[in-house]
Nucleic acid binder design. Structure first.
Length: 832
DNA sequence: GCGGATCAC
DNA sequence: TATGGTGATCCGC
């Protein structure tokens, strides 16, 4: 575009991306050149066999409609502000527009265009900031109408939806006229959203309702003669007030009715497409936009006629890049696409060429898939350059807090945290880390995210990262099966422990507790959560009584450890879905029946404290705990149960577990996989190079470079004195704020067990190698390690989690086999 | 599982 | 002066 400033960073990046696409195309063309005619013939046979199957499965029995509000945001703004009428407007900001009205579109102003560019195209352009609440409200009104025709309609966004009106059409055939009659309402008259009883019927053929509604109208005409406005002026005229219209029983009439009702209710127009499947309906809705509709009749010939010259780019799912790649093969229309089907099957993945074949046959989804469970949740923000590491960490933490709040609203927890960075040159990078148990709090997420960020900052050192965007995403949400499995495992452990463990094994001694409280930490400035936790007594810290010999102080980027007060403000009671379950107290081993998690945790707290519930009630100021807190505790108890399992096993083996054993017990790590991890993060060596690296080569220097910045500022002098005493791993308790990571051997400034677990996962993911391992590798474990191909985690819990992995994987691959077709969300509805 | 890319809205 | 945010999926490692 000539409006794009030559040499701008954005433009340069666009050029770079374009080159990459061209390279892809070149690669593709080279592969094409190597295809022999015999290969092609063979492919043709196979593909055509598939075509037969598809053709046989063609289903024309459904009536799918796609409703699309015209220039929705802009239309709402114009409706509510008459001054904007007849002016080119766009909704958005100077940096980005969401939509524009048709007037502005004449100037080339489009959605997804920066406002300042749009202004160059159209200096009179009025840019209106978005009012999403308002759009949501209007959208809700529209959806109420849609639900009358298909209660299972699928909303794609605020202004778009698919409906399957097959059933409605059947029922409608027997409807009396009155049930299909609607009154024409004036703007300020009473609600008229239901079929009327009678009154003068206006023949729709008189087209006196809305010329726009019943005629294919030229684009962008806000007709001054819009009858509803006319009626508004003449609302005292009883004759006009009593006008009504009856809609027929065909699909076309249904859609007219829907659009009529939408316009009556919202004063906004919609366009619609009617077709036997979603792919076609979507394209149809665009055909007579704005304020029009188009139908493909449900017979094969009509479909094929429509498809014939259709540019592939019109199809949802074919974007700029795919269009360009196919164009390189001479494919522009769907007919081209069909003719090249054999070639495409050789050049593209199965997913892709199946998809292409569906398109070229005019096939699509004939049912509306229910909204599946969400797979990820993210926050990201663009800003003017930030290059100070401190500010970057701070920002990262803020994003984590926001994300945590969003997660809490949906009661979700995930195992994978991904950060996204875009530098001032618009180059995007993502870095992910998966931990073995779910996380959800701001602190947990930040613990992972900041390490990912640190790795990137360190990688460019001494140059700062010059960022223009940062994002945090969480994914790998456990499915229902995962959750059940997890719960069963916990109960199983607890019940097993019940038989051979005495409760006192896990009880804590007051003296022990105090002994391990780090005085410095106590006086340090603390966040809301830290303070809150300080009040708690956690016996399960014994899990981590792993004081080791080679200790350093790990400074995990402390400047932004303090959570913003925002966090605490957002604590709201929220019912967690897994609130009422049968829990067995890991301390007294009594089954607690159907109680809430919160109640259960209270019970455990009391048990652990050996104190009465009433004493515990000093926590009551916090006891309307947020689900965040509840979740936290849930994790804690989970870990606790695993600690017990270790204990239990230790009893069976009659072994004394030392701190060193503890490390080995808790963490088996495969050095090659660690190398891979490091490699992945550094992105410098090939996998092969790294996996052949002996673990010895990863000294503390690597650690500094690649992961945790190690600080020897040593706040842990006090701890050093404790190191020598090899405390038994179990049967003892730490209650203070100091935990030592068995992976990096470094003290962690946290009393939050979950957070600590997260740290360990991060440590393992990053390939930190504790020196201890070099000196004292347990041969047995070493063997175990070398026999493992994937990285493992530091917790027994991991084993638990992983056991179910195969099942999950199997299911995953199975579903892939059954449904090999690309199930991209945009294509979800496309395939049956 | 990770990271880059593509796509839709 | 200045080019978004959210979610999903796929491919090749």
């Amino acid at each position: 575009m000539d409006s794009t400033k030559e040499g701008s960073r954005f433009y340069e990046n666009e050029l770079k991306k374009e080159k990459q696409v061209n390279q892809r195309i070149e690669n593709m063309m080279q592969r094409k050149a190597q295809i022999t005619s015999q290969q092609l013939r063979k492919a043709q046979v196979q593909v055509d066999r598939f075509v037969m199957e598809l053709e046989q499965s063609r289903n024309l029995n459904n009536t799918i409609i796609h409703i699309d509000m015209d220039a929705f945001y802009a239309a709402v703004e114009m409706r509510d502000n008459p001054e904007l009428k007849d002016k080119p407007i766009a909704v958005g900001s100077v940096s980005m527009l969401s939509t524009s009205n048709y007037h502005a579109r004449r100037f080339g102003v489009r959605a997804a265009m920066p406002g300042f560019i749009a202004r160059r195209l159209c200096p009179q352009l009025i840019i209106v900031p978005p009012n999403f609440d308002k759009y949501r409200a209007v959208s809700k009104e529209v959806k109420e109408i849609l639900a009358d025709y298909d209660p299972n309609f699928m909303a794609m966004s605020l202004d778009e939806a698919y409906l399957n009106i097959t059933k409605h059409l059947q029922e409608r055939q027997n409807w009396p006229e009155d049930k299909r009659r609607y009154f024409i309402k004036t703007r300020n008259s009473v609600e008229n959203d239901k079929p009327g009883e009678e009154v003068n019927q206006l023949n729709e053929h008189e087209q006196s309702i809305s010329p726009l509604l019943f005629e294919e109208s030229p684009p962008d005409l806000q007709l001054p003669g819009n009858p509803f406005q006319v009626n508004f002026k003449e609302q005292n005229n009883p004759q006009i007030l009593q006008n009504s219209v009856v809609f027929g029983t065909s699909a076309e009439e249904v859609v007219k009715e829907i659009r009529f009702r939408i316009e009556q209710k919202t004063t906004l127009t919609a366009s619609a497409g009617i077709a036997p499947n979603t792919m076609l309906a979507k394209i149809c809705s665009d055909k007579h936009k704005p304020n029009g509709q188009y139908q493909i009749l449900p017979n094969r010939q009509a479909v094929m006629d429509f498809i014939k010259d259709l540019p592939i780019r019109k199809v949802s799912g074919i974007g700029k890049v795919t269009e360009k790649m196919l164009k390189a093969l001479g494919i522009i229309t769907c007919t081209d696409l069909y003719q090249q089907r054999a070639l495409l099957s050789l050049l593209f993945s199965e997913t892709s060429w199946h998809y292409f074949l569906h398109i070229s046959l005019g096939l699509g989804s004939t049912h509306l898939a229910r909204d599946g469970e969400r797979k990820s949740m993210s926050v990201e923000r663009t800003f003017s350059e930030i290059n100070k590491a401190e500010e970057q960490y701070s920002l990262c933490q803020e994003l984590c807090s926001e994300l945590a709040q969003d997660l809490q609203k949906e009661g979700l927890k995930g195992r994978t945290v991904t950060i996204k960075l875009k530098n001032v040159n618009f180059e995007v990078k993502t870095r992910a880390s998966t931990v073995s148990s779910v996380v959800s709090t701001a602190e947990e997420i930040f613990a992972i995210a900041k390490e990912l960020l640190r790795t990137e900052i360190d990688a460019d050192f001494p140059h700062p990262l010059r960022l223009r965007l940062m994002g945090v995403r969480i994914s790998s949400f456990p499915n229902e099966e995962d959750k059940k499995h997890q719960q069963r495992s916990i109960i199983g452990f607890l019940q097993a422990g019940n038989q051979s463990l005495s409760a006192t094994d896990c009880m804590l001694e007051k003296t022990d507790k105090d002994q391990f409280v780090k005085p410095l930490e106590m006086s340090q400035k603390k966040s809301f959560f830290d303070n809150k936790r300080s009040e708690r007594k956690w016996s399960h810290k014994d899990t981590f009584k792993c004081e080791t010999v080679n200790k350093r102080s790990l400074q995990i980027s402390q400047p932004f450890q303090i959570l913003k007060t925002k966090m605490s403000e957002n604590l709201e009671t929220s019912e967690n879905s897994d609130n009422c379950q049968i829990f067995t107290c890991p301390v007294c081993f009594r089954e607690q029946g159907h109680i809430s998690l919160e109640a259960f945790n209270k019970h455990v707290d009391a048990c652990l404290d050996g104190s009465s519930i009433s004493e515990n009630s000093k926590m009551s100021s916090f006891s309307h705990a947020s689900s965040t807190e509840v979740n936290e505790e849930e994790n804690v108890h989970y870990s606790f149960s695993l600690c017990e399992k270790q204990n239990y096993e230790a009893h069976l083996k009659n072994t004394e577990i030392t701190s060193v054993d503890c490390v080995d017990l808790m963490g088996t790590i495969d050095s090659s996989s660690k190398a891979e991890c490091v490699d992945t993060l550094r992105n410098k060596h090939s996998k092969e190079e790294c996996s052949s690296l002996p673990s010895k080569s990863f000294n503390i220097e690597n650690c500094h470079q690649d992961s945790c910045a190690v600080s020897l500022e040593n706040e842990d002098v006090g701890l050093l004195s404790r190191q020598e005493s090899h405390q038994p791993y179990l049967n003892e308790v730490i209650t203070g704020q100091t935990l030592v990571c068995p992976v990096c051997n470094l003290e962690q400034k946290t009393s939050d067990l979950t957070l600590f677990n997260v740290h360990m996962d991060v440590c393992l993911n990053k390939g930190i190698i504790q020196e201890l391992r070099k000196d004292k590798v347990n041969p047995v474990n070493q063997h175990k390690e070398s026999s493992r191909s994937t990285g493992s985690s530091s917790r027994v819990q991991t084993t638990v989690t992983r056991t179910k992995r195969p099942g999950l994987m199997a299911k995953h691959s199975a579903s892939k086999k059954i449904k090999p077709i690309n199930s991209k969300h945009t294509l979800d509805t496309f395939f049956k």
